[in-house]
Amino acid sequence: MSESPAAVEIRRVHLEDKDALKQVHELFELVRATETPELPPVPEDRYAGALEHPPPNSEYRCYTAVDDGTVLGQTWVYLPHDENAHYAEIELAVHPDHRRRGLGTALLDHFLRLSRDEHRSELVIRVRAAVEGGPSRPETGARFLEKHGFTKALTEIDRSLRIDAIDPEAEQRLWDASIAAAEGYEIVSWIGRSPEEYVEGLGRIDSQIFAEVPLGELDLRPRTVDADFVRTREDRAEAKGDILVRTIAVHQAGGDLAANTLIYAHEGEEHAGQAITIVDPAHRGHRLGLLTKLANLRQLREHHGHVTTIWTGNADNNANMVAINDQMGFRPVDALLSYQRKLDV
């Protein structure tokens, strides 16, 4: 097999190309096992599911660097539309045995051309980094991006929680204190599709995410989330096999949906992902973030006892949510650094 990047062809992977998707999965898993073995594996069918069912008003694309029929590198591209049609984000991976041969540069150059063709002015690539007390992480990805004009724009800390490691008495104390602080609010939990009476409120509170969550230097603009968006997102989750485990807080006097938290679980998988937790600014100060997360944890235990570990990520300067996660027992594993580069398009 040639070692020259000149022999490598950049190909777009389509949904019907099962062999290419299999190689994409194998390469991502090889890189994960080599560099970040503490992170949970991603099942093979998750890649086809993402291509076929992207988030509402966005798309995923996958491009591979192929030499003699073998995938040696790849990019996973996220292209939002509507409010964030200026933005593009990729995950870039190169086979550990084929690095320092120009493959990463060839894939990055392809991404730059694609971004210009798509009129994307803000480009983001994310890499892993070590945190104090956590496992080591290679620094080559960050150095590579800095060499090519990218600068660090956001640091998120990924944390994990072993459910069986939580002290029941400590959890009960947190629950009792949160219930006392949340007088006047009703906690409602469900699994799967949202009851119709809460869909509009979910859209309203989720529309606040990009305005309220710390984003560092990233220019992600508030998006409009209406009832159709909420239902489309649930349709996508069902099609991908995601199990939506959700808890909200409702203000009893006004009926407003005041807080929302969500966990993504999968049948037969031990690892689950904690998605966004948000509290409406008008209802903060009542420990609703902690209370909804504790209630959702109880619901997860009751209905999906096969889950052993929950993963979450927060901006390093999101002090309130970091404090909540610390109280629940989440512990840092590593950092996810978003590197940004601006383009004139």
Rank of each mutant, 00 (worst) to 15 (best):
M1G: 14
M1R: 13
S4C: 10
P5Y: 12
L15S: 14
E16V: 07
K22I: 00
Q23K: 09
H25Q: 09
H25K: 06
L27T: 10
E29C: 03
L30H: 11
R46W: 14
H53K: 07
P55G: 05
N57Q: 14
R61K: 13
C62N: 08
V66S: 08
D68K: 12
L72Q: 13
L72K: 07
G73N: 11
P80F: 04
D82W: 12
E89T: 08
I90Q: 10
A93C: 06
D97S: 13
L103G: 09
G104H: 10
A106Y: 07
H110F: 05
R113E: 15
S115M: 04
R120Y: 07
V124L: 07
V124P: 01
V124R: 08
I125Q: 12
V131W: 09
G133W: 02
P138L: 03
G141H: 04
R143F: 09
R143Y: 13
R143Q: 15
F144Q: 08
L145P: 10
H148E: 09
H148V: 01
K152M: 14
A153C: 03
E156S: 12
R159P: 00
S160P: 02
I163H: 09
I163M: 08
D164G: 01
A170G: 01
E171Q: 05
R173S: 12
D176P: 00
S178E: 04
E186A: 14
I191D: 12
G192Y: 06
S194Q: 04
V199L: 02
V199Y: 01
E200P: 00
S207E: 07
E212P: 04
L215P: 10
D219L: 09
A227N: 11
R231V: 10
A239M: 03
K240G: 01
A249P: 05
I263N: 12
I263V: 15
A265C: 04
E269C: 00
E270Q: 14
G273C: 00
Q274F: 06
Q274L: 07
Q274D: 12
T277R: 04
I278K: 08
H283S: 03
H283R: 03
G285V: 01
L290C: 02
K293A: 00
G305R: 06
G305P: 04
W311D: 11
N314M: 02
N314K: 08
A315W: 00
M321E: 08
M321L: 02
Q327W: 03
F330E: 03
F330I: 03
D334V: 06
L336V: 13
Q340H: 13
K342E: 15
